[in-house]
Design a protein around this nucleic acid. Sequence first.
DNA 1: AAAAAAAATGCACAAACACGCAAAAAAACG
DNA 2: CGTTTTTTTGCGTGTTTGTGCATTTTTTTT
Lengths: 249, 249
Amino acid sequence: MLKQERHKLILDMLKTSKKVLSKNLSDELQVSEDTIRRDLKELELQDLIYRVHGGALLKEIRVRSYDERSTADIDEKKKIALKAVKLLKSGQVIIMSGSSTNLELAKIIPSEINATIYTYSLPIAVELSHHPAIEVIFIGGKLNKEAQVTVGIDVVNPIYNISADICFMGTDGIDISRGLTEPNWEVSRIKNSMIRASNYVVVMCVSSRVNSVKRHSVVPITEIDAIVSDINPDHSMFSDFKALDLTII
Amino acid sequence: MLKQERHKLILDMLKTSKKVLSKNLSDELQVSEDTIRRDLKELELQDLIYRVHGGALLKEIRVRSYDERSTADIDEKKKIALKAVKLLKSGQVIIMSGSSTNLELAKIIPSEINATIYTYSLPIAVELSHHPAIEVIFIGGKLNKEAQVTVGIDVVNPIYNISADICFMGTDGIDISRGLTEPNWEVSRIKNSMIRASNYVVVMCVSSRVNSVKRHSVVPITEIDAIVSDINPDHSMFSDFKALDLTII
DNA sequence: AAAAAAAATGCACAAACACGCAAAAAAACG
DNA sequence: CGTTTTTTTGCGTGTTTGTGCATTTTTTTT
């Protein structure tokens, strides 16, 4: 394995797990710890990582925007993103809704994944624009400044022409009888069309919001294929969903 | 086997496997490692591969280019933005192209201005989303990561349905006989449709680029209503434009 | 304070590299 | 067609780079 390959792998690992241990790296990459230390030294010199005793930590490239810092349940959302990223594969056509969970997902997509992603979220598009291999299609429309997503009929129409392999849908409300629900009517219509355009629908939901219902219906629960949450998929909370053949991750 | 044949094969291999080793190549292509090294050296000189000890890797597109470009002539662009902002009035429907000059303009729009702005530039949309009274319509499409704008047929079509009061157009080339020109073909088509959708067209151009011609034509000079530059509007450089009844600001 | 873990340092060695040169191959020319 | 010129290739030389190991120093843990 080439030195640069190792460097890339180390950076990718850091991106997803935020820390790496020299010991683990030497084991996984099949080189001596000395070599790993030299690698980390180089990466530190390039200002790409923050080296500490025992390994290295992720270097925060930029101070993240204010609204992101204040995001509720950010740790839970990062957990969800870590599980969801495993569903991504090269060659897929992907639709991503405009949730903060999806933003976390966008941040940790490995650089070797080569796929097409449709989104109508400004921050997700910005994040993905730094990815070397993802083709980004932004769905235009009137910008909702609060949610930083585009809304309106101009968003719904183009979605009808998409045929996606997988849809990552962030949500505020999922319930066994009422299905997927959403507080904003316009967003509910957009989410509905996104789901109808996708072969496989993954709902990402923090555990505290499972079994909550919002004002506007998006789709019945039967339209959902999988739920990714921050907690153990064997939790009793999900038993009803499992009975309906949903995959819990 | 000819040298160019090898080069092509090497590039093909790189595309599929993302890395090549000099040793393997010399074995597969039946030439000495020295020859392979010379090949790789040439390909590196053409910026097609990233050469490393032991072989070569796929060249990753640096996304930094946009940030680099946006800082060129930044003082001139701020001057232009200061002049252009005076043309903005509440109630207008505005189209903004994706230049760094327009980004500077977006930053200084007074908070009391209440207008609708169409744009296809990611950074401009992000900037405008912080404005309290501007309604932002983002024109979607495939994202060009380098310029951070959307391009393609999906951008041009929606513009035909717009009717705008004023269009702020950043440019790399304006010339009295060739009119507005643009290095990127797709962008030239988008700019053309933007101008046709607008009542009044303002071209913003740093003085050093006045009288420069790029590859693709956007519109003849007669379609332009005003030019905003960083220098004195009475400069002799503009006398020809004035004769055609263009406003110089 | 002692023990353990990790890091720095110096060294050895193999692999990969650069450079010059000459042979071979290809192209250009009369 | 043969000859000259240019390009491409392989080889010998010495140099650089990447890696692992032993030893010492530093940091962390107990």
